[in-house]
């Protein structure tokens, strides 16, 4: 029963909240749809937290996504031990960057009176869920070698079964404890995502790359000049 709750129900709650709450929040509460930047209150330490954390976590996210979308390609890549080592080393570096960055961010926030005064319950929740996800992920990487090799044919099928609305709970029950914890913490993170400051990932400023530099907005439609002969 517990297994069904954790691996059969939790994923749907998490994914449901991830998408539905995000959309509702984006439309109904656009004012809150961002991260509350604290660089204005403390800048120096932020550099050593924010930069490694973001680089690490984005690399990890991309890696997990590629493994999930293209498991065969990852398996083919891992066909040679050297390439497996390269992939695992890169992943490990990213994990350490994310962990070191997150730790620096937590230390910074706890250490600064200004930041403590500007910290919400949700910020603590973000730190806890991220710490859990990264911590269990590292545990998996260290205790269950080589993750990139077995992930593609044990966990990915489970994830696909979730997306096909037919969750294969037994696949997860058969996994070792670190992997189980990692999956649970990942779904917890996805579940709280849209309630927290993490939503700023949804509004990452990619459109800036192609928008014109100046924006002029008319309240009423502007009259275009008539063509002259």
């Amino acid at each position: 029963m517990l297994n069904l709750m954790l691996y059969g129900v939790l994923p749907y709650l998490a994914i449901g909240s991830f998408f539905c709450v995000s959309v509702v929040r984006y439309l109904k509460m656009p004012f809150t749809f961002s991260s509350l930047s604290t660089q204005f209150l403390e800048s120096k330490q932020l550099f050593w937290g924010s930069v490694p954390f973001h680089i690490g976590i984005l690399t990890l996210f991309a890696g997990h996504l590629v493994g999930f979308m293209f498991p065969r390609a990852v398996m083919a890549w891992n066909g040679m031990p050297v390439r497996l080592l390269i992939l695992e080393t890169a992943a490990m570096i990213a994990a350490f960057l994310a962990l070191v960055g997150l730790t620096a961010l937590i230390v910074r926030r706890v250490g600064s009176a200004r930041l403590r005064a500007n910290t919400t319950v949700m910020d603590v929740l973000v730190y806890l869920t991220l710490l859990m996800a990264i911590g269990t992920g590292l545990w998996v990487a260290l205790a269950m070698r080589w993750g990139s090799a077995w992930y593609t044919h044990t966990l990915v099928p489970y994830l696909w079964s979730v997306f096909k609305l037919n969750p294969d709970v037994q696949l997860m029950v058969d996994m070792k404890l670190p992997a189980q914890l990692h999956v649970i913490s990942a779904f917890l993170l996805i579940g709280v995502f849209s309630f927290t400051r993490l939503v700023h990932a949804f509004v990452a400023p990619l459109p800036y790359l192609w928008r014109p530099p100046q924006q002029v907005i008319w309240n009423r439609a502007r009259r275009e000049p008539q063509a002259h002969d």
Binding site: P205, P207, V216, W218, N219, R222
Partner: peptide, 9 residues
């Protein structure tokens, strides 16, 4: 984000 703009009128 394109939040800043110049009001045309």
């Amino acid at each position: 984000s394109g939040a800043l703009y110049k009001r045309g009128e």
